[in-house]
Amino acid sequence: MLSIEELQKKVDELVFKAGLPRLSVNLCTTPAGDGTPYISFENEMYNYVFSERGYEFSRKITDSTDELLYWIMSGLAYKIAFQYELENRISGEDGRRIAFPKYIELMTKMNLSWKSKAGDEIEKTLAANPYDDSLYL
């Protein structure tokens, strides 16, 4: 397992690879109380936890550093992809048509092996909720 400092260094390297602003992600080890995720280390496992005002609403657990980094960077990539969509919106088109390819592009830049995983995520999302341009007319 890596320390929080070692994880931060890896995150900073991934941010740089994707061409994103420096210090885009600052890892925390305690809850901020505002929904910001934090990492705890329990029983030789990484815990990636989201909580707000003392209420935990999500916890992912893994012993894989790669998996943890994927979770961290995925959140950033989604944020940036949907900001990109907002700035490049096409009237009458489901915004995910722009955001999802951008998301996959960012994840691929960070780690080539994440391309298929990100693509699978998008496929599952679209299987449950297909593109619907009629909502944006």
Rank of each mutant, 00 (worst) to 15 (best):
E67Y: 05
E93A: 12
I98G: 03
E44G: 09
M73K: 02
E87C: 03
M73I: 12
E67I: 05
F100R: 03
N47D: 06
R97V: 13
A81D: 14
R96P: 01
D12Q: 01
Q83I: 15
K115N: 09
D66P: 00
N111D: 15
I61L: 14
G33E: 05
A32Q: 11
T29N: 10
M110K: 04
P37D: 00
I72E: 00
Y55S: 13
N88R: 06
E13Q: 05
W71F: 13
P37F: 01
M73A: 11
I90Q: 13
L86N: 09
T29S: 13
L68K: 03
I61T: 15
K17S: 02
I61W: 11
A32V: 13
N88F: 10
W114S: 07
K60P: 12
Y70D: 01
L68A: 05
K79V: 13
F41I: 08
P37Y: 03
T108P: 12
D34M: 01
K115H: 15
L20V: 02
F16T: 02
Y84V: 07
L27Y: 04
R96D: 12
K109M: 15
D94K: 08
K17A: 02
K60Q: 14
S24L: 12
L106Q: 02
P101K: 11
L112G: 08
D63V: 13
F16W: 03
N88H: 15
R22D: 01
E52S: 13
A77E: 00
A18S: 07
S74Q: 11
Q83N: 15
I80N: 05
K79F: 07
R53S: 13
L76A: 03
F82V: 05
D66F: 00
D34V: 00
N26E: 14
L27N: 06
T62I: 09
K79T: 15
V25T: 10
S64A: 09
R97N: 03
L69P: 01
Y84Q: 02
K79A: 12
L14Q: 03
I104Q: 00
G33M: 03
S24F: 06
Y46E: 06
L69Y: 04
L20T: 05
G33Q: 01
K102L: 12
S116V: 11
E67K: 13
E105A: 14
D63S: 11
P37C: 00
W114K: 09
N88G: 08
A32P: 04
F41V: 03
I72N: 06
N26F: 14
Y84N: 05
Y46D: 06
Y55F: 12
S40E: 14
T29K: 04
Y38C: 10
L69A: 02
S74M: 09
F16A: 10
